[in-house]
Design a protein around this nucleic acid. Structure first.
Lengths: 169, 169
DNA sequence: CTAAACTTTCAATACTTTCTGAAAGTTTAT
DNA sequence: ATAAACTTTCAGAAAGTATTGAAAGTTTAG
């Protein structure tokens, strides 16, 4: 298979995965493109490879910078900015996980924690009990998931990897 | 806080989480509503509680059935269908995880596996090496993640949690 | 200083997804 | 058989998201 074709296939697949996980398709695709590029790419190059506008490229490159997944590089004697993706996939996974935890899990936990503490009025007893049981259960589960995710974020790749392999035995 | 207000808060929060994870907001909200309801609800009741149309309710109830997250119930002497959410949150998490693995992780793994096996032509050596290294790394990582997820899906709730917490100390 | 090279912004537009509601379909009781 | 009760479908409308591209902003070299 031709290298360009293989790249396209991967970029498409990665873009689809991203969009199913609530991440902008173009953002995933730019990330995928940079992951499989031996050299850093300029905005211009990215625009051409993915057939997207300058504004779109700029916006999603910024988002990827915000997530810490790519970095800017400069070539001597060239005013353009070049972008490169971090190539350590564990590190990348940790950054994505950390960002999503902050944006998504933590707000929910906050609501669940608050609701768990509140004293609930105005329904019949059975309804209140059902409500509280559900919130309790979800808060417990979400809290544990959050803890595990926290450990993962702070972990060293090799250690975590070995630990998981032990689990898979 | 009033029970109805507390429910609304939870339903809203759960709906937001769902939509950020690529799940239809209404689907998450119906699920949340059923989670905090002591009694099964009819389509009619769901429509009223969430202010949504019959078509929307029907469509998302079906999706929740497909995911195995809710079940139909019948009351004697009543022709309406009533819906109830499974209340075991670990079981629910396992079902969601299983479904998403099937829909999302496995297709990507298939592409990665295929690309890993392909012999790549038509680029310079450095580019081909970079491409293959990335695919290799991602396939490895995704495969491991997939294995772990598989363990989780098959696991007993307590065993999985205890094991993870022990390993992560 | 200023012009060229480059980056950022954002209003308008295109695209995608979700939702509505009325019509069609199905089931049940009599 | 048929009419009421209920569920499902789906084309069109609405809402939500992503993308464009031209103008504004910034930086650098000379």
């Amino acid at each position: 298979m031709d290298l360009e074709e293989a790249k396209k296939k991967f970029i498409h697949s990665w873009g689809t995965l991203g969009s199913q996980w609530g991440i902008n398709r173009t953002m995933s695709q730019i990330h995928a493109l940079l992951l499989v590029s031996a050299q850093p790419l300029s905005t211009e190059g990215i625009m051409q490879d993915l057939n997207i506008s300058r504004g779109n490229a700029n916006m999603n490159l910024r988002a990827l910078m915000d997530w810490g997944l790519i970095s800017k590089e400069h070539k001597p004697g060239d005013r353009k900015e070049y972008f490169a993706a971090g190539k350590d996939i564990w590190e990348t996974a940790r950054k994505i996980t950390a960002e999503r935890r902050k944006r998504e899990i933590e707000p929910v936990l906050q609501v669940l924690d608050q609701l768990k503490k509140e004293s609930i009025t105005g329904g019949n007893k059975e309804d209140i009990m059902a409500f509280q049981a559900t919130i309790q259960g979800l808060d417990d589960f979400t809290g544990k998931a959050n803890d595990i995710v926290g450990k993962f974020i702070k972990s060293d790749s090799n250690w975590f990897y070995k630990t998981l392999m032990k689990l898979l035995h």
